[in-house]
Amino acid sequence: MKHPATVFNPQQPHILFEGATQFKLGSFDGKAICYDFPKILTYLDAKGKLLFGKNFKIYEDDHELLLKLASYFIQDHKYCKKLDIDTEKGILLSGPVGCGKTTLMRLLPHLVPHKKNYAFIPARNIVFGFNGIGFKLIEDYSDNKAYCFDDLGVEHIGRYYGKDCNVMGEILISRYEVFKQKDILTHITTNLNAEELQEKYGERIRSRMREMFNLVAFGENSRDKRK
């Protein structure tokens, strides 16, 4: 079921409307928004239920991580600096299966509907596409769009006309060039830790990933929200 888009008034960007319900995320002095984190949580909980169903909830265990991610998405540069988050890099969100990585990376852009969102694409779907059309698909991701690649690391090696290819590894190299030359960001969700990413994609790509991403991680013992 498709839900109506979030509505906002450019003159009052701190107020969002979901249907007839108003959510005030903070105060606005005409130049900048001073966000209120508890109000952000209230909005995210409500929007999450609209997007993902009535069983969606914001867990208290995740508040610290959400504070980091929300600060990044609203581009609170001063607070992000305190958190050691670079607002000019993308997000690499890691954590155990079922902890909510995909959900949060779909949800958080709704905090800033006035900003252009990224395309959200499962890594395994990209590899399926490569198996059908080949190396042109890798070139296609050198474009000027922002992307979030979901579940990086679960995809298989691509194969086109008998030739194997680490498709996502090649795309990450392409996205690194886009990042360096055009300041266009890429985001990632993954179940893998840094060592596992290096094992799958190699030190050369892992080194580029350090430049491209802020690593934000759920705790190892984060609950499985699917249960």
Rank of each mutant, 00 (worst) to 15 (best):
P4Q: 02
A5W: 10
A5P: 03
V7I: 15
V7R: 15
N9R: 12
Q11K: 13
Q12K: 13
H14S: 01
L16N: 05
L16H: 06
F17E: 08
T21K: 15
Q22W: 05
Q22R: 15
Q22P: 02
Q22A: 11
F23W: 12
D29R: 01
D29G: 11
I33Y: 07
C34S: 10
Y35D: 12
P38D: 08
P38K: 00
P38G: 07
L44Q: 04
D45S: 12
A46I: 11
K47I: 00
K47N: 00
F52H: 09
K54P: 03
N55V: 07
N55K: 15
N55S: 13
F56T: 00
K57W: 00
I58Q: 10
E64S: 15
E64C: 06
L65T: 15
K68F: 06
L69K: 08
F73S: 02
I74F: 04
Q75I: 13
D76E: 06
Y79V: 11
C80N: 04
D86W: 01
E88W: 01
E88N: 15
G90F: 00
L92Y: 10
L93I: 07
G95C: 03
G95Q: 06
G95H: 00
V97K: 15
G98F: 09
C99H: 10
G100C: 01
G100K: 02
K101I: 05
T102A: 03
T103R: 05
L107D: 07
L107N: 04
L107K: 09
L111W: 03
L111C: 06
V112L: 08
V112G: 05
H114N: 10
K115L: 14
K116N: 10
A119Y: 13
F120C: 04
P122S: 11
A123K: 08
N131V: 03
N131Q: 14
I133T: 10
I133R: 08
G134N: 00
F135C: 02
L137C: 08
I138E: 10
D140G: 02
N144W: 13
A146Q: 14
C148G: 00
F149K: 07
F149Q: 05
D150P: 09
D150S: 02
D151Q: 03
V154P: 11
E155R: 07
E155T: 09
H156Y: 06
G158E: 01
G162E: 07
K163V: 15
K163R: 14
N166I: 13
V167Q: 04
V167H: 06
V167G: 04
E170M: 15
E170Q: 15
I171N: 06
I171M: 13
L172A: 03
L172S: 01
I173K: 14
I173L: 10
E177A: 03
Q181V: 07
I184E: 01
T186D: 02
H187R: 08
I188M: 13
T190R: 11
T190C: 08
N191K: 03
E195S: 12
E196H: 08
E196M: 13
E196T: 11
E203C: 02
R206P: 03
S207E: 06
R210L: 14
E211F: 05
N214I: 10
L215S: 02
N221A: 10
S222P: 02
S222L: 01
K225M: 09
